[in-house]
Structure formats: C-alpha cells, structure tokens
Design a protein around this nucleic acid. Sequence first.
DNA 1: TCTGCTGGATTGTTCAACAATCCAGCGATC
DNA 2: GATCGCTGGATTGTTGAACAATCCAGCAGA
Lengths: 232, 232
Amino acid sequence: MAGADQDSSEHAGLDGARARMRLRVPSVAERVAEELRYQLAEGFLVPGSKLTEATIAEDLGVSRNTVREAFAELAAERLLLRQPNKGVFVATLEAGDIHDVYTVRRAIEVSSIRAGGSPEGIAAVRAAVDEGKRAAAADDNEGLGSANQHFHGAIVALAESNRLNTIMAQILAEMRLYFHKATMNAHFYSDWLQENEQICSALEAGQLERAGDLLLAYLNRSEQQQAAIHGE
Amino acid sequence: MAGADQDSSEHAGLDGARARMRLRVPSVAERVAEELRYQLAEGFLVPGSKLTEATIAEDLGVSRNTVREAFAELAAERLLLRQPNKGVFVATLEAGDIHDVYTVRRAIEVSSIRAGGSPEGIAAVRAAVDEGKRAAAADDNEGLGSANQHFHGAIVALAESNRLNTIMAQILAEMRLYFHKATMNAHFYSDWLQENEQICSALEAGQLERAGDLLLAYLNRSEQQQAAIHGE
DNA sequence: TCTGCTGGATTGTTCAACAATCCAGCGATC
DNA sequence: GATCGCTGGATTGTTGAACAATCCAGCAGA
C-alpha cells in the first residue's frame, strides 16, 4: 500500500545472488496515486483544499475513472478524505488527531523496540542515526527530517511484521503531510538527534527496557510539542 | 474503512439527546464491498480462489467499474489480494502471517489495556465478557466467536484512538476470514472464557500491569494454537 | 521433452453519457 | 430584513461499451 514492497512474493535473502528483478510496471492509477502522494508530502496541496476529479484527470492526462481509483487508494491511507457526493479533500489533522497519531506510534514503536530484533535490524537503526548526524553536519534540514522518519521506521521494522511496517509507513506519510516543510526548522530537530543516539545505544547494548522508556518519553514530549504548535 | 464509523464528523456524546442521524445512503461500491465482506467472513468465498470482475458484476447487477472500486477497497483492507493483470484473489494467510497478525495484536491490544481507559470503556469490555457467557450458556458457537471479537475490540477501544480502532477492525476482519467457522469449535473457545473474565476483573480493579500480562500471555498462547493448527 | 507460437479470456484504461446530488444565487413571502 | 423555496450549473456517482495490454493453456514443431 503506502510505499515500496507490497508484493508478498519477495523471497529476498533466499537467493541473494539473483537481483530481485522488479520489472513490474506500475499501473496508471498507481502512478497517479504516487504523483499525488508526492505533491501532498511536498506541501503543494494544502490540507483542506478540494481535489476535483475532472481537473486532476485533465492535468495528468488520464481518465476520470483512473483518478477515482487513485483517490480511493489515498483515501484508504487517510491522506485524502472522501465526502460522498461532495468530493475528496486533502486530509487535515484536527487537534484530537495528534493524540490519535501518537497513540498509534506509542503502541507500535515501543512494542517493537521492546521486542529487540535481529542484528541487521539494529544495524538499520544505527544507520538511520548516522544519516541524521550527517544531515546535521551538512545543515541539510530536509535530510534531517527524512533521517528521523527512517529512524522510527527502522525501529518498527525490528518487529519484522509487514503489517506493522505498512501501518507505520502510513502514519509517517500522514505526518509528512501535516508537518510539511513550513513547520520544520532546524531548532525543531536539535533535541532528538542525541536522543536517537541514546535510544540506539541502549538498543545495541540489549537494554530493551531502557530503550523503550527513552522512546516512550520522546514520543510523549513530541506529542506535547506538536499539540502546542497546533492545538492552542 | 473497515466497518462502521469512518466519518470524522461524529461528535457522539456531546449532545447525547439528539440521535446521530445517519441517513447517508452508502454508495453502490460500498454496498458491493459490504456484500463481499459478508461472503468472505461467512466462508462462502474460499481463500485463494479468484474473483472475476465480470462475473461479480453480473451477479450483483452492477457495473464492472463499480466492482473494481469495491475490489480496491477490500484489497486495501488485505481481505483481497490484487495481482496486476491477473486478477484479485481471496486473501490467504501463510504461516508467517499468523505471527505477523499476532505481532500487531500484541502491540495495540497490550498497549491499549495498559493505558487504562474510561469507565465507559471498561464497561464495554465487561459487556463483551457477559456476552460471551450468555453465548456459552446458550451453546451458541457463533455468538461465542463474535463475543470474543467484541472483547478484544473493546480493549483496543480503551485507547480511544480512531486509527487504532480501524486497524484492529481490519485485523479482526482478517482473522474472521481465515478462521472461518470450520475451524471454530466449542472446544476452541472453552479456555479463554474465564481468561477474559480475569483480564476484565484486573482491568476493573485498576491492575493494569496484571491485565496487560494476562492479555499478553493469552495472545502468545493463542498464536501457538493457531500456528499448530495451520503451520505444521 | 522442450520451445515457441497463437487464440481466447481477463484485466487495464479510456470515453461518453446520464442520474443523483450539492450548492450558490435569487426571488417570493411574511 | 430574514427565511423559505426554487432553480440552474457544476460535480460526483454509475453505467456501458470499446479497445489495448497482458496472461495462460494448449498445441505444433523441432
């Protein structure tokens, strides 16, 4: 669904030599959905605005039915909101949704990190931490943001559950939509760089309880920050 | 998405007097999806079998495009599997999927129950327990199954997160599809009736840690049972 | 036995049309 | 002047048909 490998016929790792050939051409509807996802994440489509089927169809040079299919996909991911007989709108997060999103994140992230995970999984978490450090050194604001998303994605990946990964990917996509670049500044990222480092170290050291506690504390604080920015 | 209240304009409880009027007529595509969901849950459509667009369209007296839309919805819920250029198939759970599903359940159920919840939420859990007892007394096998699903749904509802509720509803729908009536017998339900009672009691007594531990133990054991039935 | 083709069936996509619904604007009425 | 009711236009919901793209089983030939 949201993102890359959704086909369950992967078998990666069994025959590592053979490059898994992904020559599948994505359908037009999928490409439309991908384009819209991009525009949403990039902030070109402001939350709350309406997307007219005919307009999008003409802009992208595809049929209205195809646009419809893409809309359905994005609505299932909560990126768009479909209001029957009225149209589809770019999703908006209300005050309550912030708590909602973080409730999901607390559930799956903390649970995943407490389960530990394989060495490769932990290495992926470490890689995301390093990625963040590099971005910080290069003063790459956008890179910082995606590094953080990779970090939390890697934590959930520890559980090695396709479903959890999908859920997390959607949640991250939602946050990308809502906290688009405008709200992200360097000051915002300053805190958790070291925090991710601590969490990762605890994880590597096998201190799963501590890692979970740190992560939980981070999520709680992050929620408060977001609520303060938007809610009041 | 999967099930009832997806419209975020609920405001239930604020003005309890006014019956929340849901006079919205579901679209044809939604009704098709609902019909298919029913047939899936009921076991009329066996996992792995193929659903041909034209056939379904003719059977239900709707257009092929509409069936297509319903397919997309159910595919997003993992109830159907769409294989490009080949067709859609009733989803099948592989051995790994069992672990996958239970990983999600552990994450969100345990997290939800550990958070406590409102008195009304706890009352809903208690109601589900009672519902199970009544079904057991009446020797209502099917009723037992849905009572158990209500129980676990009520636990997740404690977190008061729409997203978690949606996720849980989907997971339960998947399980309904896979563990269709054939595999359910009275012996299967015998254990957890009292177990649900214990969990609920702990919850009511505010012993959240204990409630979480009991729930976690149950989920682990249940996963083993399912794996034993199917896996080997 | 394997290869390669071929025909039929099914999906993917488009298009055009019409019904159903919503909404803004505009009088009519009290 | 505010409300009601209507009306027309715009948009969504749904259909049916058409064609391209793809897959697959079966068959001919090496």
